[in-house]
Amino acid sequence: MNVSIIGTTGYGGAELLRILHRHPEFKIQSIHSSKKDFPIWKEYPHLFEIIDDNLQNINSSKIAEQSDIVFLATPSGISGQLAAEFENKNISVIDLSGDLRLPAVTYKKWYKHEPVNESLSSKAVYGLSEWYKEEIKASRLIANPGCYPTATLLGLAPVVKEKVISPSSIIIDAKSGVSGAGRSLARNTSFSEANENFRVYKVNEHQHTPEIEKQLSRWNNDISPITFTTHLLPITRGIMITAYVQLSEDLNTSQLLELYQETYRENQFIRIRPENTFPSVKEVAGSNYCDIGLHVDPRTGRLTIISVIDNLMKGAAGQAVQNANIICGFEETTGLDFIPMYP
């Protein structure tokens, strides 16, 4: 199967190259960027004598003729325009931006960009791989989830679907490494500002908030608006979500671990930690795993959920390739069986 990548010079695009270069079923047919006519290794020297392909201009008709799947690793506000160019062409589109995840009015409010046509966004399937396999398999247009929503939703889904928590009690404490902000220059992600520092940002206004709420409401109509607070960690990769929810039933940690283990029994990328052990971001770095730990506080009746992912892998490129595997009928783990990097 031939695949193309648009937006190859960003971190998500670089991760797609790393994964797809060794994928046994996908062949990188072409790579594209607004920067063009020079080899990708000049942008990313670690690819020297590994991937020497030149960046090409973006011609949707030519890409659709040559490839079976195109990955859009371009910023929000751009990906939606590109997705529209591929509409009605014989190619599957996997968009890593937020352009296809929300209704137009909600998107404009939170992303501050003009939304794509509603007729296009309504065709997109939300690509949370573990939960929407059949929909993904039947679609040609996938809205790859955001990094924060992936870790959050995988952590919350079992108790939200089983309706064992108070629907108005969800509080999410989210932390991400600086690569989540991309390669653009910004003061807060510069070394001097981020190193040996810990910063809260976008308090009560992060654009992933409505995406999380939309999916939680799909599983339980009674879910109320959530509290979602994001922080910047002085690390390159990784996301840790700590979610606090009030239980509506008298359940202990062991019982809830059984629920999670049964829910994710056939999902190889979800690892439920044993009782009283909790994951850290380094334990999933460079991999497509999501590790989840749980603990019920019997004093308060609250459940604490810890969910960790690599934001560039399970939170972006890894899940995008997982979705491509599902579309093509391959094993979900194909080309993604990386052991996490440690230390």
Score class of each variant (00 low, 15 high):
50 I>F: 10
117 N>H: 14
193 E>W: 09
174 A>V: 00
298 P>Q: 04
317 A>V: 07
274 P>E: 07
237 R>D: 13
80 G>P: 11
158 P>V: 03
246 Q>E: 15
167 P>Q: 08
199 R>Y: 06
39 P>K: 07
72 L>S: 12
313 M>I: 02
10 G>K: 04
157 A>T: 12
259 L>V: 11
183 R>G: 14
229 T>D: 02
197 N>G: 05
123 K>S: 10
107 Y>C: 09
141 L>F: 10
211 E>S: 14
284 V>D: 05
196 E>H: 09
194 A>V: 14
2 N>I: 02
319 Q>R: 15
47 L>N: 09
224 S>H: 12
178 V>R: 05
217 S>V: 07
257 L>I: 15
267 N>I: 13
43 E>F: 10
322 Q>L: 14
95 D>I: 05
115 P>I: 01
54 N>V: 07
75 P>I: 04
266 E>G: 02
123 K>M: 08
297 D>W: 03
305 I>E: 01
76 S>P: 01
260 Y>A: 10
220 N>E: 04
106 T>P: 05
96 L>C: 08
231 H>D: 07
196 E>I: 04
78 I>G: 03
73 A>T: 08
309 I>V: 12
261 Q>S: 02
144 N>I: 04
213 E>D: 10
118 E>T: 14
194 A>N: 14
135 E>R: 11
57 N>M: 04
145 P>F: 13
165 I>D: 09
114 E>A: 12
266 E>S: 12
62 K>P: 01
295 H>T: 03
132 Y>G: 05
206 H>V: 08
91 I>K: 11
29 Q>E: 15
127 G>S: 09
163 K>Q: 11
221 N>L: 05
239 I>S: 11
163 K>A: 12
164 V>C: 15
153 L>V: 14
33 S>C: 07
67 S>K: 00
95 D>H: 06
252 N>K: 09
335 G>C: 03
296 V>P: 05
301 G>I: 10
28 I>R: 00
183 R>K: 14
102 L>T: 00
132 Y>F: 13
279 P>S: 10
276 N>R: 02
33 S>G: 07
338 F>D: 08
99 D>R: 07
69 I>P: 02
12 G>A: 14
24 P>T: 09
240 M>K: 09
212 I>C: 03
149 P>W: 13
339 I>D: 09
269 F>G: 06
44 Y>I: 12
86 F>D: 03
127 G>K: 04
220 N>Q: 02
297 D>L: 09
5 I>L: 05
143 A>W: 06
37 D>H: 15
125 V>I: 15
